[in-house]
């Protein structure tokens, strides 16, 4: 079953008088539980693609479908609800709320979808345990390392048990040891929880992972390993 489907999606920005084409006629299908790595140089359209899949940006043309729901023409309120219910995000800069503890950061997205305090507590604790940070629950983001912060953001993304997790350059701000650890956690989560994973990166370690890889260049898919195209070519 397709979890994400893009049909002839294009995105054009108008930063000045000359339009900038970020995505050109992208058609893509990602199955439920699939782990997809989107690669490409800076400016190739990776982040734009993730933003469109993440319902944070609308395509100029084309159709986006998430879990059989056609997204085009949906109002902001519906998009917010879809993001809340379907999507988890892992950001390059972690984007933890500095005024909340590790526990509260993971709990924050759950406040809207899990109204039972005890159930919520169990989800948060399990999620933090899975990333090995249960003992850091009461700390604030500035009291833990960058790698730990990214693990908190992974726990936050997975705590609400989303259908899709989108990660934009999750290891870009980490050293190689922390980067590897984060990659392992994400793979583990994908395997255990069968969550569809779309990861944008130009990290060589990530790109060498044995998963489906899509290469973008100038807003176009130039290779898709699913179609037997060699990514390394």
């Amino acid at each position: 079953m397709n979890m994400i489907m893009l049909q002839n999606v294009s995105k054009v920005y108008y930063p000045g008088k000359i339009p900038a084409v970020a995505l050109r006629n992208i058609s893509l299908e990602i199955k439920e539980g699939e782990f997809v790595i989107v690669g490409g140089v800076s400016g190739s359209g990776k982040s734009t693609l993730l933003n469109i899949i993440g319902l944070m940006d609308a395509p100029t043309e084309g159709v986006v479908t998430i879990d059989t729901l056609e997204i085009n023409q949906k109002k902001e309120k519906s998009l917010t609800k879809l993001r809340r219910d379907y999507l988890g995000f892992i950001f390059q800069n972690f984007n933890l709320i500095p005024t909340l503890t590790v526990y509260e950061n993971v709990e924050y997205p759950l406040l809207r979808i899990c109204k039972d305090v005890h159930a919520r507590r169990s989800l948060v604790e399990n999620s933090l345990e899975e990333v090995g940070l249960k003992d850091f629950m009461k700390r604030y983001p500035n009291e833990i390392s960058g790698g730990q912060q990214q693990r908190v953001s992974i726990a936050r993304a997975f705590a609400k048990q989303p259908s899709i997790v989108l990660a934009d350059e999750p290891t870009a701000n980490l050293d190689s040891a922390n980067g590897s650890s984060i990659v392992q956690i994400m793979e583990k989560m994908n395997l255990e929880k069968k969550v569809t994973f779309v990861l944008a990166s130009h990290d060589s370690e990530i790109l060498s992972m044995p998963h489906r890889k899509i290469l973008l260049k100038d807003g176009q898919i130039i290779r898709d390993s699913l179609k037997g195209e060699n990514y390394e070519k």
Binding site: K77, T80, R83, L87, Y108, R156
Partner: peptide
């Protein structure tokens, strides 16, 4: 980030 996570 809050909005991305579903804050209205």
């Amino acid at each position: 980030a809050m909005r991305a996570m579903g804050a209205s």
